[in-house]
Structure formats: C-alpha cells, structure tokens
Nucleic acid binder design. Structure first.
Lengths: 335, 335
DNA sequence: CTGAAAGCGCTAACAA
DNA sequence: TTGTTAGCGCTTTCAG
C-alpha cells in the first residue's frame, strides 16, 4: 500500500536503519548520505507511521488533554496557550473531554488514552473524580491545573486570594451587603470552587460583614446559570448592593438579567467577575484577571519536561491574578 | 513493563488470539470463555496498546481536526458539537492547528497526521492553503467545513444568503448608507469571506444602493479588529447609518468603540453581526445565527461514515442560518 | 470455537 | 559510519 522505510531504503540503496537515522537527523549519519535519503523520501512522498514508531520506541509522541468541559472561555484560552506552546514540538495533542461528572464518558480516559499518550494534561478535573484517580494510577507524567496529585507537577493560581481581592474591592468601594454567585457545590477542599469560597469568606470576615445565605446562589459556571442566579438574588426582599460572581461568564448572565430589569450594573448594583476574559472589557465588567493562556503554556512546558525526564524547574508554579477595575464596580459615569 | 495480551492469555489459559477476540467482543467466542478473559483482563488491569492495534489493523482509531484557529467562538462551538458526537465512538480526536497562513506550522499537517489518523476534519481552511492541497493528496477520508474538495464530503451554510439577509434586513429597516466590517481580504471565491461579500453586494445591488468603499473595512475577525474598524468608519466625514459585521466578535468590538464614543447601537447607528454566539443575546446584537455545534456534529458523522466506507447520506449538507433581530437593529427602546 | 504463526512499520542493539 | 537482526503488542489468516 503506502511507502515505508523499506521502500526508501531500497531506492536510496541503504539499510532501513540508516533511513530511520537520517530521517530523524542523527548526527552519526554522513551529511551527503543523509541528504540523499531525505531527497528520496521526499520524492517518494514518504510519510512515517507514528504507530510503528510508537510501538518500537514505547513513546507515543502525543500528550492527552483531559478536561470536563470544552465549551467555556477558560478552556479556549488555555487551549490557545497549549497550542502555541506545542507548535515547535514534535508532540501531538489528543483531546479528551470527560464531560460532566454526572454524565461520564462511556470509556473512561485512562482506558482510552493510557497507552496512546506520553503524558496527561489535566485541566480543572474535580479532585475526587474517579477519572483523576485512575489517571494517577497509571503512573505516567501528569501535569494538572486546578487540582493536585502526590507526585504530579501542577500549575495554580491563588484562587483564594483572588476571590478575597474581588470581595475586598467591593467592600473598599463601600458595599456592606454583598451577594455571591458561585459555580456549583464544591465536593472538596482541593477544588478551585472551594478556594474561592474561602477567599470570599476571608474578606467578609475580615470586614466583619455577615454572609446572607439567601444571597449566595449557584450559577453553574454558565451565562444562563448566572442569569438565573441574579434573578433569584433580585427577587429577594433585601437586595445586595454588590455581587461577586466566580466567573465572568456567570457575570455576563447576571448583567443580562439586570439589563432586563432596568438595573444598571455599577450604578444600582455593583458586580465583579472572575477570569478576565476579553469580552469583559467590552461590558465594562470589573474582574479578577486570570492568565489562562499562560496556564496552558506553562502546563505544557512542565509536562514536556517531565516526559523527557528533565526535572529542572519547580513542580508547582503559581501564576498571579490581577484585579481589573471597570465601570461595573465604580461610580456610574453614564451618559 | 506493562500488561500485554500475552499476559492475559497466559493467566486466562488461552491463546492471544482468543484474548484479542474476546476483548473486542467477537461473536465467535464462547460466552463463558469470553467472560473469563474479560475478568482476567480486568484483574490484571490490562490496557491495550492502540499503537500496536493500529500497526496491525492499519486503522489509527483517531480522527484529526485541522483548523487555522483555536481561539474563536466559532471553533469552540464546533468543537463542542464534535466532542458530543464522538462520545459514543471509539475514536479519539487529534487537534492540529495550522495557525495563520502567514505563520505556518513548522511541520505541516499532512506530514504530522497522515498515518496517525483515519480521516480529517478540516475546518475553515482557506481553499488555496497548501495544507489543504497536501491533505487532499493523501486520499484519505476528509470532511470539510468552509471549503470543498473534488471528492470530499462537506458541510456548508449558505453564507451568501446569510449576508444578503443581514444586509436586506438593514435596508428593510430604512437604512441606505450601509457600512461593512469584513474579516480579511479573500483570496478566492471558494472562501466563506468571499461568499459573504457577494451576499452583501446582492442585497445592496438589489436595492440599488451604492457601496461606499471607505465604509468597507477589514476587522480581522477579532474583537480588537472590529473595534479598530468601527473607529475608522466613525472617522469618516459621512458616517453610515448602519453597519454589517461579518462576525459577531467583530461586532462586539465595534460596539465597544461606539460605546466609547457615546454612540448608541441601534439608536444612532444600527449594527448586525454574523454567527449567533450566545453572548450576542446579552448585548442585544442582531445577528445571523449559524448552527456551529450542528456543523461540528454533522461533520463528524459524515467523516465517520466515510471512514467506515458507508456511503449513505449526501456528500454535502447545507445547514440553515437564521436572522435574529435584536435591539441593535430595531428602534431604540432605551430606558 | 480456538490456537499457531506470520506480520504491520519502525527502532535499537549489536556487529562490522 | 552503516548494516543486520530482533523485536514492540496486537490482529489475522489459516489450520485444527
């Protein structure tokens, strides 16, 4: 069927071993011979079989990206960074979406990808997801974001600090009755959700402010969820004067609801998001900016290091977040 | 090192052939034996090697997704549909981003993925990208969106019609001086960009309206580009009363600029986008909604059919777009 | 219904 | 520096 090393070897008048070496640029090949082999390969339109190479070397030449969601801006941005970082690599990216914990994939990731990749990039997988556990059992290189493992490397942001900063900012602006739109119920301390809750609490406690349970509602990390959450908050007898949302997307939804009800964000009720997506600038949404692109790129670098057996650099990197103040939390300057 | 079919065979007391057959659920295996083999495999935590299977069968069990960009909402939505559709499949998804034509990948997709995948999903690749040509040369199953090949299957939308509808809508609303924010210079007729241009022209011509070249500016398909484009348009002596943007993202940017300059979208200048992203509802942006999720899902189905050699269904599917009217193109109902 | 054996295409010792 | 040879782990005829 297709052209193999054998064909190239035959035509070039050398052994398959030499072809293999020449193609991979081994220094131990005579430059002229190498050039010749390359030419023949080119002329024959030879394309190597990664499967055969993988079988032979035991290395797949692929890394597996595992994440529960694919339809969120944060993912998109991380993917962007991952992609950019992998460009100059010979590695390919295999995408595996676990989906909602409640609606798991028919074939779990460790079964699917174990022998197919050289390492895993695990994004935002809940700490007690059985998938995570199974992946760790594989004892392959793993780099995580949003969770941690006993021997894996990981990328983090200071989620607790970020949430505290956001909340503190509202407090500094004079707000005392502050609502919260979080994502989902956190199942464990390790999860980012929980850290943000702690941060919120940190700031509120520090200021001696009470947390009104009825003003703390889930928004499912989606725009639609955020819209619903804000609706619930606005239906309360005593509305908050400010709201923290644990993601920009939920804040967008919340703003929709506010718009619909004629409530002006920043003037009537302040709102701050979390993530720092590009879109937030357009909406004038204050937010905690998170360097997702860097997170992706950093994670790839770490994973590649681990795969190559290099152990330079720390196992854990914490990337900074930044408070970005925009009209939704500053005096309304409307026209 | 790891557990192989041999180990399973030995422990189960059968041949490797039987293990292989049992594991893949061949009907020609005694049910009891099969169960036994499965148990042993489970107990040994056996995980097959896709590389070996691929080498042996000649099928990679993977499809390659090729696209020039990864950081656009349209991609995200298509990926979402692709992901969903692949869930119940035994296929894995390999992501390959070609990047900007001007900044191509060091190793072109056909070299990288050729033998690694069973087929290609090609999204929005420019029709005369050399990559496209090279992929076609591979003579593997290919499904495309946004371009077409002599023997590939493809998914389309009526881009020309959509652009015409958008423009016509503005005309119907009484606008006569209409600006345009397009993406980039189109290099060929096949490309979507060109089709949208044609649609715009169709509607303008039909209405006997002139196209003012100075009001036709590129926005690079990005929010930032859209913002710049709108700035250029607003700097013209004679401003348009309405603007068509060839993507929602560019429209978002345009709206930012309008906001900054105190121009109210829909009241002072009408604007309509193209793509129908979720966010547009929030901004009240009129748009031509494009079913990107369906496009992704449909493309996967077609590709899988082609790979399996099934040839049911048409080679080409055209998915519908829909005009969605929102405040940015209707009388301003401000509060 | 099950087993034996021959590869799939490539790489990696080991020799030369 | 180059060639020979023996696999990598699985599937798949072909016998039995």
């Amino acid at each position: 069927m297709s052209v193999t090393v054998k064909d190239v070897a035959r035509v070039a008048g050398v052994s398959t071993a030499t072809v293999s070496r020449a193609l991979r640029g081994f220094p131990s090949v005579d430059p002229d011979l190498r050039k010749h082999v390359l030419e023949v390969a080119e002329r024959l339109e030879y394309v190597g079989s990664p499967a055969a190479a993988a079988l032979s070397t035991g290395r797949a030449g692929t890394i597996g990206l595992i994440t529960p969601f694919v339809d969120r801006l944060a993912f998109q941005r991380m993917l962007s960074g991952i992609e950019r970082e992998m460009r100059d690599t010979r590695m390919d990216l295999l995408l595996y979406c676990t989906g909602d914990p409640s609606d798991p994939h028919p074939v779990p990731p460790h079964k699917r990808l174990a022998r197919r990749v050289d390492g895993f990039l695990v994004l935002s997988l809940s700490a007690e997801s059985p998938d995570l556990e199974n992946i760790l059992k594989l004892r392959m290189p793993v780099t995580m974001f949003g969770s941690d493992g006993p021997w894996t490397s990981s990328v983090h942001i200071d989620d607790r600090g970020g949430a505290a900063t956001a909340t503190q900012h509202l407090i500094d602006t004079g707000h005392r009755r502050i609502g919260l739109i979080y994502g989902r119920e956190a199942e464990s301390d390790a999860v980012l959700e929980h850290q943000r809750h702690l941060g919120f609490r940190d700031a509120m406690d520090r200021a001696g402010l009470p947390i009104h349970e009825r003003l703390v509602v889930p928004g499912d990390y989606s725009m639609a969820g955020g819209a619903r959450a804000m609706a619930r908050i606005l239906d309360e007898d005593e509305r908050p004067t400010a709201v923290v949302a644990f993601s920009d997307e939920m804040a967008y939804g919340a703003i929709t609801t506010m718009n619909e009800r004629g409530i002006v964000p920043g003037r009537d009720i302040a709102i701050i998001g979390y993530d720092g997506h590009e879109m937030s600038a357009l909406l004038g949404l204050s937010t905690i900016s998170v360097p997702f692109e860097d997170i992706g790129a950093t994670a790839v670098r770490k994973l590649l290091n681990d795969i190559e057996g290099r152990t330079d650099g720390p196992r854990t990197t914490v990337l900074p977040t930044e408070l970005v103040v925009r009209p939704t939390t500053s005096a309304y300057t409307g026209r």
